[in-house]
Design a protein around this nucleic acid. Structure first.
Lengths: 228, 228
DNA sequence: TTATGGTGTTTGATGCAACAAAATTTTGAG
DNA sequence: CTCAAAATTTTGTTGCATCAAACACCATAA
């Protein structure tokens, strides 16, 4: 009985920490951080050597990223980090609006005072990062801010789908610097979201997050059109 | 040049036909057809033996289905076809409404007279299947009907996400028989969708498809509540 | 009957070698 | 110098052996 109770507290989802999983997470981090140049070839053996594992977990990780669209096959034996095209950005943005809007709207059903406090702390971190021009920290806190809200939806599969969408815009977000660091349009959207959460107004949270996505879209779009 | 044109028509995404891919497709078919009982254990070696391949492609296929949520880990070494819970149905339905609604709305941008003719042919097949009480054929034609519309969105990644959602309700759809075979509520939704496509009215197509999803939801919900 | 502990079996993960296919480099003809 | 073809290297896939961990079964005790 007490065990049953404990199981509810600790972690409902069985986590497996095999090498393939770890390799996948590490690779994902590297890609989303933009550390790996787009259109540069990725091979099973080079990933294996770089991360100190054998080919099997490396291949597992690459295939998984491939099926999520975070990597793409350019040839039968050529996988690269895809560079974001305008068409792809349009598709991803429309999908993000649909899914993140849905998650945002539901977030009010479960939000607690502690959650709101955490969000405010994250927003402070974003502001501090903007002041210090610490772009990496801004991105990290921004990401946590969004996903804390999305996780409140209580729908883990939805959150997983949203994560796979972020994986596709992630590499390009890093190219946005220093525009992103100077432009504080996102701040007001986040404040509006917090306000909506306080009022338990799902519609308000949704529209705030949607606006945040649209603002990011216009900046990414300008960046893509500029590189030529 | 003519090759280029052909390549655009047949399949824009480079298909690789390795054993792992084939095994994945076969396994997916089996799962979505409901041929594999929910909560029954799946092992790498049994899949490999059943499909006549070695453990590597079998493991690849299982892992991929696992990452899509079509299979779930019940224990560290226990994977099963998940039985649809009411919570999961709610989550999947809300996500389906968002994504399939989006795809349906965009479908009018590219629809041709030939597409509409194909849809009518598929609807005839659905009607014939209902008359003949050929449930499998009804499901097949229904699936094709939906995905022909979704593919018209021109957004392949969106279609892929929708496919992964269908993979999760697929097994349960088979349990719906004979209710589904007798209930023709879906027919009017499909006719409304065709009408909307003819009028190039994206909103009309969206609401028709959304209604179709909602109708399916209420039947699945009743089924889940009944099994006890 | 129910819970617990022990035991043998099954299982997924991992590393690796072999192979065919693709990618790259070199070569050679014009 | 240009470009196609041949030679070479690199690469993903596949199958399989090995191993630690999980599982299933059973006996025993309460």
């Amino acid at each position: 009985m007490s065990e049953h109770l404990l199981a509810n507290v600790v972690t409902p989802i069985a986590r497996q920490s095999n090498l393939g999983e770890i390799t996948y997470e590490r690779l994902k981090e590297i890609i989303v951080a933009g550390s790996f140049p787009p259109n540069e070839k990725l091979t099973v053996r080079s990933v294996a050597a770089a991360l100190g594992v054998s080919t099997t977990p490396a291949r597992d990780a690459i295939n998984r990223l491939l099926s999520e669209g975070a990597l793409v096959n350019e040839g039968p034996k050529t996988v690269v980090v895809p560079s974001l095209t305008l068409d792809a950005l349009d598709e991803i943005t429309a999908t993000r609006l649909a899914l993140e809007g849905l998650a945002a709207e539901r977030s009010v059903l479960a939000v607690s005072a502690a959650d709101i406090a955490t969000l405010q702390r994250l927003q402070s971190a974003i502001n501090a990062g903007l002041d210090a021009a610490d772009y990496r920290e801004v991105l990290r806190a921004n990401r946590e801010f969004h996903f804390l809200i999305y996780r409140l939806s209580g729908w883990p599969r939805l959150v997983a789908m949203i994560e796979s969408l972020w994986l596709r815009v992630g590499p390009s977000l890093n190219e946005l610097y220093p525009d992103f660091a100077q432009n504080r349009r996102g701040v007001s959207n986040h404040m509006a979201a917090i306000k909506g959460l306080r009022a338990r107004d799902g519609g308000k949270v949704r529209s705030a997050m949607e606006q945040d996505i649209r603002d990011g879209y216009s900046r990414l779009k300008a960046m893509i059109e500029a590189r030529r």
